[in-house]
């Protein structure tokens, strides 16, 4: 107490402000800069050049790659497929994830089993997910065809993954299976954080279950749903490994997502610059999508308050 003077600076250093040397961040930041930030900037730059694999140097060509993209049917088709894939998977994950979360929240039998099972697909790497589903879809060795045959829904086995009509829906189903666990876990936690009293009060006021869901549960869950939707949009538009293993983009490009097209351009044809430009187009599309999803949340919240 009587040595308050000298004690003060020590207390300040103990506060952690002056005591922790700034250079502690170097071992993390230097590698991130060298092997992450710099290559990303270079990659962005490459999108505006004519660089091909093994070329001496990259020549700046401005927006040429993007002009070429506009006339490239492969680009349009892959981005169209990307949109169908992204929206179907995201919607499927949101709807089924919410349904499953509500079932898991309803104190039904098998609940414990389901809560453990729902986590398992999450733990499985994309490559194995792809292989696993190839086995399910296989025309003679998979059980799906057997069931459909037995049920009389089809007359002969369909090789789903090499069928022009069925490949994309089949791949989307796997995408939903992949995204379901994480969304369900997040939704379940969201549901559990809604106080029962709110629902009970609504019920007492004579609201049916659908009304309770529509006017109590859903508005309270909006932030969680929007966050999940934004993440799903981002991940799905940039998806690669799963579909690469399932179909490699086939048959005849009918499941060639943008990332698969970019990979092919870069590593099969060596068109690095064009692949980078495709990557940039992806960033723009994903950015716009996420912006609209997140902005609508605020617009929705505003309208809700006004009404």
């Amino acid at each position: 107490m009587n040595r308050a003077g000298p004690a003060r600076p020590r207390a300040r250093s103990g506060d952690g402000r002056a005591a922790v040397p700034w250079w502690l961040f170097l071992p993390s930041v230097v590698p991130i800069l060298l092997f992450s930030v710099v290559p990303l900037l270079q990659g962005i730059y490459l999108g505006f050049t004519d660089y091909t694999l093994g070329a001496e140097r990259a020549r700046f060509v401005g927006l040429d790659n993007f002009a070429r993209m506009l006339g490239d049917t492969a680009f349009w088709s892959s981005f169209r497929i990307g949109f169908i894939w992204t929206f179907s998977v995201t919607l499927g994950v949101l709807v089924l994830g919410m349904t499953l979360a509500m079932l898991l929240n309803a104190k039904l039998p098998f609940q414990g089993l389901a809560r453990v099972l729902v986590l398992i697909p999450w733990a499985i790497p994309p490559v194995i997910k792809g292989l696993m589903w190839r086995m399910v879809y296989h025309p003679s060795a998979g059980f799906l065809n057997q069931w459909l045959l037995a049920a009389g829904l089809i007359e002969f086995p369909v090789n789903v993954l090499s069928d022009f009509t069925w490949a994309l829906p089949a791949v989307i189903a796997v995408g939903i299976w992949t995204g379901l666990p994480q969304a369900t876990v997040v939704f379940l936690a969201g549901l559990q954080s809604i106080p029962d009293e709110l629902k009970e009060a609504a019920m007492l006021d004579g609201a049916g279950s659908w009304h309770v869901f529509r006017h109590v549960t859903l508005p309270l869950m909006t932030p969680v749903i929007v966050a999940t939707a934004a993440l799903e949009l981002m991940w799905n538009f940039n998806a690669f490994g799963l579909v690469y293993v399932l179909t490699e983009g086939g048959p005849a490009g009918s499941t060639k997502l943008p990332m698969l097209l970019a990979y092919e351009e870069a590593f099969s044809f060596g068109n690095i610059a064009y692949a980078s430009a495709l990557g940039l187009a992806l960033v723009v599309v994903v950015g716009v999508l996420v912006y609209f999803v997140v902005r609508n949340q605020y617009a929705g919240a505003g309208a809700g308050r006004a009404g």
Binding site: L34, P39, L40, M259, S276, V283
Partner: peptide, 19 residues
């Protein structure tokens, strides 16, 4: 956030060249 948004294709080639 940035590293979640950017497709890996943008980073992989320059990284490949640096390495």
């Amino acid at each position: 956030l940035v590293s979640q948004t950017f497709p890996l294709i943008l980073i992989i080639v320059p990284l490949f060249l640096i390495l």
